[in-house]
């Protein structure tokens, strides 16, 4: 479990509040999506969770261990893939990287070797275990980085943009891994990503950060349901677009996107179309996806 209490980070003499009184609780075995535009404070928060940055105030506990006061015990609970960095040594082989980082977590050589063999086999890298990571594709390097994060079987894993720059197949492998870790092994996964479809697919709960503050922290379903009042309907009619509607006509079929606040308003729209002689082909409720919700949240005017 990850517990964050009133976490704040203020930078420099300009007193920039990169993270401002953020409080979160991520339950064991869940996949938590930490979203926000660039500069929202996600990476700063991740670094404070990983003990790489000292908070100005507030507290972080990993599986009950305070990162500031019980650093060694807290680090034993954690594996991480950091964004925009190599995470592993390119001049070392996959095997050497895993052996090194496993032992840095205080594990015995024999135990790390067992675990490294399992991970490299699962990732399909066993045959190339002695090759230098620098010669691997981006996807394979990311797999090694994820294996490094998991080498000590930590109960908590932080993944900062784990699928960034990966091709479709590598992305799918990483997504499968994240799901397996949480569902089958009970690992708590906190991930940040700009790929909102990935977040929607994987995360049980999502928090959205904006200008250092949390603007949402809800189970993914609840978050999406909260935006239902802005539901859209897609209506298709045969032939040309009827007057008074914004529509696109392609190959004899006109598609209209209609926003309603109350589902009963849909009857009025259909009635107007019928009155104009339009022949209804289909009517579909368009559910808001995480991208819609995210864009709404980050573009809302601020109080400040």
């Amino acid at each position: 479990m990850i517990e964050i209490e009133a976490l704040t980070k203020v930078y420099g003499t300009a007193r920039v509040r990169a993270v401002d009184e953020v409080s979160l609780r991520v339950g064991a075995g869940s996949v938590f999506g930490f979203l926000g535009p660039n500069g929202a404070g996600k990476t700063t928060t991740i670094k404070m969770l990983a003990g790489l940055l000292i908070p100005t105030s507030g507290r972080v506990r990993l599986a009950g261990f305070d990162v500031a006061r019980q650093r060694s015990a807290a680090m034993a609970q954690l594996g991480a893939v950091l964004e925009g960095s190599r995470n592993v040594y390119w001049s070392l082989s996959a095997w050497q990287n895993l052996m090194y980082f496993g032992r840095l977590k205080g594990l015995r050589k024999a135990r790390v070797a067992e675990r490294a063999e399992d991970l490299l086999t699962d990732l399909g890298l066993w045959k190339r275990r002695n090759d230098k990571v620098g010669g691997f594709s981006r996807g394979m390097q990311q797999k090694v980085a994820i294996a490094v994060a998991l080498i000590s079987e930590p109960p908590i894993v932080l993944l900062d943009e784990p699928t960034l720059g990966l091709d479709v197949e590598a992305t799918r492998t990483v997504k499968q891994w994240i799901t397996e870790q949480a569902r089958e092994l009970g690992t708590t996964v906190l991930l940040t990503t700009h790929q909102l479809d990935v977040a929607q697919e994987l995360c049980d709960r999502v928090a959205v950060m904006r200008q250092g503050r949390l603007v949402a922290d809800l189970p993914t379903r609840e978050l999406l349901a909260g935006f239902r009042e802005r539901d859209r309907y897609e209506i298709r009619v045969e032939g040309a677009a009827p007057p008074g509607f914004d529509a696109v006509t392609r190959e004899g079929v006109t598609t209209m996107s209609v926003r309603v606040r109350d589902p009963r308003e849909v009857y009025d729209v259909v009635e107007r179309l019928r009155a104009q002689g339009a022949v209804l082909e289909s009517l579909t409720q368009v559910q808001p996806d995480l991208e819609d919700v995210f864009l709404t949240l980050v573009n809302e005017p601020t109080d400040a």
Binding site: L52, A76, G84, S85, R86, N87, F101, G106
Partner: peptide, 18 residues
């Protein structure tokens, strides 16, 4: 610069040991 230093900082050992 590369980022491996940060990854290595997440050790259970005191920082002076590495």
């Amino acid at each position: 610069r590369a980022g491996t230093f940060a990854q290595a900082q997440m050790t259970t050992a005191p920082p002076w040991l590495p």
